[in-house]
Design a protein around this nucleic acid. Structure first.
Length: 422
RNA sequence: GUGGGUGUAGCUCAGCUGGUCAGAGUGCCGGGUUGUGGCCCCGGAGGUCGAGGGUUCGAUCCCCUUCACUCACCCCA
């Protein structure tokens, strides 16, 4: 019979890795909480229409990367390729704007995109998502970027670069789009097939096409920043001012457009050199029209997503750094000792002591080996001799020092010893 | 979706363009100490050499197909 394996691009996160995962998740929760963001948990399955309307029909994500299925009730549903749409949906569905026009939310969980897997790219991957809804002040853009850079610093990720850009708003973008289209009309023959298609569908995407010919062809293309309206210009200038106040280094990348249609004004990415082709570890921006497009009030929003797998491959910690070793191993020899060991072991666990033992009836030597392998701090040896005298031998596994303890007092003594060392 | 690379023990990998090539290290289990871990020594278990077909007297090795993994393109976290 063939072995059933995990679905391509889907990965198990094994016990030795979950310590790191919890660490980056908990650190995020702590920092985000300091900044006033609250955790929200939204479904991983949504009606397909939600993503089509928010991300954009003509984006790569919607055109070819979504896991979309026909549900039994003849409705199309999709495993979420990103979280922003779901969060806005929840924000609207629960009328969160009526309690407070400003909502600062984050969520952590799996996303799904059906791309060809490679380094740093999986079909199920995890993101930490932050959304601030209801504020258009550039201070909030700066604030979430500060929070993001702080987070990366806290988890010891260095050598990253913050890139920012502004895409303009509904007033100035159409103008820019026209000018860009006009410029591109003369270059059709120099562009790749995809980009030729994009001239009419999504000309801005051409700006960050990675093909050499396209890059060359648009060298002198008009830049968004030269055409944004005074309002957008000021917004972008203030963002930079605020980033400077906190000494956050950044570079302006006029080519950064990003693959989701809903972005306006601020966009940004955190990129690294040490991740191969998938160099973005976080990305986001402002989406002032999205809430309205999803049927809600006309309120602005801004946010970002962090790729957990990519963060984890950069974090300088080892799996073992998060290893939780038992406090005590109880090695028992003989039936009576084994019975006592079973009782002691579980009574201590109920008192919050991490205890391991072995029910396989092995030799003392092999139980000692196991204790050593588990990196237990102490080993308690219980044998026939000890039982008769109602004592047990407690061995400190680092120093090798052993002491005899009366069995009746043992529980209290070990609890006390462990408290001292903490 | 399109390319390249790689598939041999749980893991990391040797294996001479075909003839004791079914191997090492590590991990696991046991012994050396019949009641004491780490270091050392010894032993053991564990493989249809990814799968299927072909060439050949003979294939882990050569050819074809297929699958998986991986890196890159594309795109993004």
């Amino acid at each position: 019979m063939d072995m059933i394996t995990a679905v391509r691009g889907f990965k198990d996160i094994l016990p030795q890795e979950t310590g790191k995962w919890r660490y980056i998740e908990e650190t995020a929760r702590n920092i985000f909480s300091d900044f006033g963001f609250r955790e929200i948990r939204v479904p991983i399955l949504e009606k397909t229409a939600l993503f089509k309307r928010s991300i954009g029909e003509l984006t790569d994500i919607v055109e070819k990367e979504m896991y979309t299925f026909l549900d039994r009730s003849d409705e199309y549903i999709t495993l979420r390729p990103e979280a922003t749409a779901s969060i806005i949906r929840a924000y609207l569905e629960h009328s969160m704007y009526s309690a407070d026009p400003v909502a600062k939310l984050f969520t952590i969980g799996p996303m799904f995109r059906r791309e060809r897997p490679q380094k740093g790219r999986y079909r199920q991957f995890h993101q930490i998502n932050v959304e601030s809804i209801g504020l258009d002040d550039p201070r909030i853009d700066a604030e979430i970027i500060l929070m993001l850079t702080q987070y990366l610093e806290r988890i010891k990720i260095a050598d990253v670069e913050l890139q920012i850009n502004s895409l303009g708003c509904t007033t100035c973008r159409p103008d820019y789009r026209k000018k860009l289209t006009l410029f591109l009309r003369g270059k059709e023959n120099d562009l790749c097939e995809d980009c030729r298609r994009r001239i009419s569908s999504n000309p801005l995407r051409i700006l960050d096409c990675k093909r050499k010919n396209c890059i060359h062809a648009i060298e002198n293309a008009p830049k968004t920043l030269d055409f944004v309206c005074p309002g957008c210009n000021e917004h972008f200038a203030k963002l930079q001012e605020f980033l400077n106040i906190f000494g956050i280094p950044f570079v302006i990348n006029t080519r950064m457009v990003r693959g989701l249609d809903y972005y306006t004004k601020t966009t940004f990415e955190i990129v690294t050199e040490s991740l191969g082709a998938q160099n973005a570890i976080a990305g986001g921006g402002r989406y002032d029209g999205l809430v309205r497009d999803l049927g809600g009030p006309d309120v602005p929003g801004t946010g970002f997503a962090l790729g957990c797998e990519r963060i984890l491959s950069l974090v300088p910690f080892k799996d073992d750094d998060f290893l939780l070793s038992p406090d005590l191993f109880i090695a028992a020899i003989g039936d009576d000792a084994e019975k006592l060991s079973f009782i002691l072991c579980n009574r201590l666990r109920l008192r919050g002591v991490k205890v391991e033992t072995d029910y396989a009836g092995k030799s003392l030597k092999s139980q000692m080996k196991k204790s050593d392998k588990l990196k237990c701090r102490f080993t308690l040896m219980l044998g026939k001799k000890e039982l008769m005298e109602k004592v047990a031998v407690l061995r400190d596994m680092q120093s090798g020092i052993q002491e005899h303890l009366t069995i009746d007092d043992f529980e209290d003594i070990i609890v006390k010893k462990l408290q001292e060392r903490k």
